Measured scan of single mutants.
Amino acid sequence: NQASVVANQLIPINTALTLVMMRSEVVTPVGIPADDIPRLVSMQVNRAVPLGTTLMPDMVKGYP
């Protein structure tokens, strides 16, 4: 099973992602692959992302 990117904390709308905000976890449904975490750094979320939420491609501005 492939690990996905999961919010490690509440991420407010328009926040630029940092490594501490994300963790990898095997979840269903599958979200953004954990391998993409380095690419996500400094990209902004377009909505508030609660703790434990799987990051989906449509939540991150400019992804992929």
Rank of each mutant, 00 (worst) to 15 (best):
N1W: 12
N1L: 15
N1A: 15
N1C: 14
N1F: 15
Q2K: 06
A3S: 09
A3F: 12
A3W: 13
A3I: 08
S4D: 00
S4V: 02
V5R: 01
V5P: 00
V5T: 08
V5M: 02
V6P: 01
V6C: 04
A7I: 05
A7F: 02
A7G: 03
A7M: 05
N8Q: 10
N8E: 06
Q9T: 11
Q9D: 09
L10F: 11
I11M: 04
I11S: 01
I11Y: 01
I11C: 03
P12R: 07
P12L: 09
I13K: 09
I13A: 11
I13R: 07
I13G: 09
N14D: 09
N14L: 08
T15H: 07
T15N: 04
T15W: 07
A16T: 08
A16N: 06
A16W: 14
A16C: 08
L17N: 01
L17E: 00
L17D: 00
L17R: 00
T18S: 10
T18E: 05
T18Y: 03
T18F: 03
L19Y: 12
L19F: 10
V20S: 14
V20R: 10
V20T: 13
V20G: 08
M21I: 03
M21C: 03
M21N: 06
M21Q: 03
M22Q: 00
M22R: 00
R23G: 04
R23A: 05
R23V: 05
S24E: 08
V26Y: 13
V26P: 07
V26C: 07
V26E: 15
V27A: 07
V27Q: 04
T28W: 06
T28E: 15
T28F: 10
V30I: 12
G31F: 02
G31C: 03
G31N: 01
I32W: 03
P33L: 10
A34I: 08
A34N: 06
A34L: 03
A34K: 05
A34Q: 06
A34Y: 07
A34T: 08
D35E: 14
D35K: 06
D35W: 07
D36Y: 12
D36S: 10
D36G: 06
D36C: 13
D36F: 12
D36K: 10
I37E: 03
I37S: 04
I37Y: 03
I37L: 12
P38W: 13
P38F: 12
P38I: 07
P38G: 12
R39W: 07
R39T: 08
L40W: 02
L40F: 02
L40Q: 00
L40D: 00
L40N: 01
L40C: 03
L40T: 01
L40A: 00
V41Q: 07
V41Y: 07
V41G: 01
V41N: 04
V41S: 03
S42T: 13
S42E: 06
S42I: 03
M43F: 14
M43P: 00
M43E: 04
M43W: 13
Q44Y: 14
V45E: 00
V45K: 00
V45F: 00
N46T: 15
N46S: 14
N46M: 15
N46I: 15
N46E: 08
N46H: 13
R47E: 10
R47N: 05
R47S: 07
R47T: 10
R47M: 10
R47C: 05
A48I: 14
V49K: 01
V49D: 02
V49F: 03
V49H: 01
P50V: 06
L51D: 09
L51R: 07
L51K: 12
G52T: 03
G52E: 04
T53G: 11
T53C: 07
T53S: 13
T54M: 03
T54V: 09
T54C: 04
T54Q: 03
T54F: 03
L55A: 01
L55E: 01
L55K: 02
M56P: 01
P57V: 10
P57M: 07
P57T: 07
P57H: 15
P57E: 08
P57Q: 10
D58C: 15
D58F: 14
D58E: 12
D58A: 10
D58H: 11
D58T: 15
D58V: 08
M59T: 05
M59K: 01
V60P: 02
V60L: 09
V60Q: 01
K61E: 13
K61R: 10
K61A: 13
G62K: 09
G62F: 06
G62E: 13
Y63R: 05
Y63C: 05
Y63Q: 05
Y63F: 09
P64Q: 15
P64C: 15
P64G: 15
